[in-house]
């Protein structure tokens, strides 16, 4: 007999314990969860937060006055744009570990890669120009002076244009990337901020903070074709991830509106803590995570019920946020 009764009696409990330990280990790994990275503009830090336990597990110092962050197209790095330090900080999007710094990027505020990955664009919000860099090596190709306070940016699908909101000039500007010249400017309203291309590549949505609506711009005909009333301080966009809906944060009203990009109308609104700004949607599209600028918190909203699920205290003036398992950006 290969195993006698006493051997089985000795081994079985051990196997059970090992299995239990392994299972608990797995569960522990799952509980440890992934890292939420929050950019605290007022502190010049990144808060690293365990998404499951909601505990802060680390703090990373950034350059001065960081405002926006974005993942590289290959998701291997998260770029933090520090405007007063004139630098880009690259961190590991999973751990927050610093990978490298690129200096002499003038006053980078909002940043973005063109869809063809050829261009890296940085808006110099305070210094009124837009910089076009080669995405391959971050060499400056062209510095383009624009109107007052170039704020957010978006691209068309063919990477022909980068569209930039000019916050103090009340305009949206289109820069032709092939010629690196300003193709046109269009008045869109009082204090335009976030700008978003609809998935069909047809309209640009512009958050108009001063009038509390979203201007729908047909960028081919260069006209505002509709205004979607959202709330005071319409500011920034994030896709729900279903290819149809997009959130807009209304920073002065402490609300978020969900816009149907086919009907171009608001289908839902949520109350949020003070100063909602950048957003992230969970992969299952059940939770909306957002930074509450004036409350020093990250807030998590149940998308179906619109109820605030919980908040996480972070640093001063939290602006950008990111986690890997987010919903698709369309």
């Amino acid at each position: 007999m290969l195993f006698n009764r006493s051997m089985i009696q000795r081994i079985l409990p051990r196997i059970f314990v090992w299995a239990l330990v392994a299972a608990l280990g797995q569960a522990g790994l799952a509980m440890a969860g992934e890292t939420l990275i929050v950019l605290n503009s007022g502190d010049a830090t990144l808060s690293l937060i365990d998404r499951e336990t909601r505990k802060t597990i680390g703090l990373v110092n950034t350059g001065k006055e960081p405002h926006h962050l974005m993942a590289t197209p290959d998701d291997r790095s998260l770029i933090v744009a520090s405007s007063a330090a004139n630098e880009l900080l690259f961190v590991d999007p999973r751990t927050g570990e610093v990978q490298r710094r690129i200096r002499d990027i003038a006053d980078p505020y909002q940043i973005g890669y063109s869809p063809d990955r050829k261009w890296f664009v940085a808006n110099a919000f305070r210094l009124n120009h837009v910089d076009l860099y080669s995405a391959a090596d971050f060499a400056l190709v062209k510095r383009i002076p624009l109107g007052k306070l170039p704020s957010h940016l978006a691209f068309d699908r063919a990477s022909r244009f980068v569209f930039v909101t000019l916050q103090d000039s009340r305009k949206l500007a289109a820069i032709d990337l092939a010629t690196q010249t300003v193709a046109w400017e269009l008045e869109v309203g009082d204090t335009p901020a976030g700008v978003w291309m609809t998935p069909d590549d047809r309209y640009l949505l512009v958050g108009v903070m001063g009038s509390g609506d979203v201007a729908v711009v047909d960028w081919r005909t260069r006209e505002v074709v509709k205004r979607i009333a959202t709330d005071r301080g319409a500011h920034n966009f994030q896709a729900l991830g279903d290819g149809r809906h997009v959130f807009v944060s209304n920073r002065s009203a402490n609300t978020v509106s969900l816009i149907d990009q086919q009907t171009l109308s608001v289908v839902k609104s949520f109350k949020t803590p003070s100063g909602p700004d950048c957003m992230e949607v969970s992969a299952d599209r059940k939770e909306l995570w957002l930074t509450a600028r004036w409350a020093r918190k990250v807030a998590v909203i149940d998308i179906e019920t619109g109820q605030l699920k919980f908040t996480i205290p972070v640093g001063r003036s939290p602006h950008g946020l990111f986690f890997m398992s987010h919903a698709p950006r369309v």
């Binding site: 503009s41 007022g42 306070l149 916050q167 103090d168 009082d190 204090t191 903070m209 001063g210 005071r232 301080g233 920073r251 002065s252 003070s274 100063g275 600028r293 004036w294 003036s317």
Partner: peptide, 23 residues
Amino acid sequence: FEAVVQPVLFATGLIGLDELAFG
């Protein structure tokens, strides 16, 4: 900020200064 400063900024068309005003 919410009770006094932000409403004044909005009413006077200076809402673009909200980040500075918050500081």
